[in-house]
Simulated assay, not measured.
Amino acid sequence: MAVPDLAAPAAPEAGAPADEDLLLEHQLCFALTVASRSVVGAYKPVLDKLGLTHPQYLVMLCLWESSPRTVREISEALAQEPATISPLLRRLEAAGYLTRQRAEGNERSLAVRLTDRGAALRQQATAVPGTMMARLGLDREQVSELHAAMMRLIAATRDADQGHSG
C-alpha cells in the first residue's frame, strides 16, 4: 500500500473557509491512523527477530514491568478489552513465555506470570527501543516529545468521553 505524502501539509489558518477544514490532509484522525499503521509496520521486522507480533510485544512489556498480573490488570494497562487480550495470552503461553493460572484467593481471576523463558526474552528486547529510534530517525528527546503529545491526546479523548457519558 502506498503511503500518502504527508510532508507537513499546511495547517488550516484561523478563519479559513470551512471547506478547508474538511481536506483529508488536515484531518487529525487520518494522520494518526497512517502514523500508527506506519510505526507498527516499522516494528514488524524488529519484533519478528523476537518471535513476537506488536500486540504480543505490548503484553510482554506489561509483564516485564510486573509479573504476575491479572488479565484485567493487563487489559487496563494496555487500554484493551480482556476479550482482546485473552487470545494473545494463549499464544504467548503456547510459545512458553507465560503461564495462566487461577489467582490464589480469587477463583474468577487468572494470574498471568512470566516463565523463565519469557523473562529471558526481556534481555533481547532491550535493543528494540534504540533500534526503533534509529529506524524512525528520531532521538530520545523527539520520542519523549511525541510520547507526551500522544499521552495528552489520549487524556483529552478520555476527558471528552467522560463529558459525554454522564
Rank of each mutant, 00 (worst) to 15 (best):
T126Q: 14
Y97R: 11
S66N: 05
L136T: 09
V112H: 12
L138T: 12
Q80K: 12
Q101K: 06
E81Y: 00
I74V: 07
L110K: 00
A134I: 10
E104G: 01
S109W: 01
L138R: 13
C62I: 05
T131N: 09
V112M: 13
I85Y: 01
M132F: 09
V112T: 15
L114K: 14
L92N: 10
V71R: 08
Q123P: 05
R102Q: 01
G105E: 09
V112W: 09
V112A: 08
L63H: 14
L61E: 07
L121I: 02
G96T: 08
T99Q: 09
R135P: 04
L63F: 12
L78M: 11
S109Y: 02
L114R: 11
R108C: 03
R117I: 05
L121A: 10
Y97S: 08
P87E: 13
R69F: 05
E104W: 01
W64S: 09
Q101L: 03
R90T: 10
G118M: 06
L61N: 07
T99G: 06
Q124R: 15
S86T: 04
L98V: 12
E93G: 02
L136D: 09
R108E: 11
L92T: 10
D116C: 11
Q101M: 03
T70A: 06
S75C: 01
T99R: 07
A111D: 12
Y97K: 11
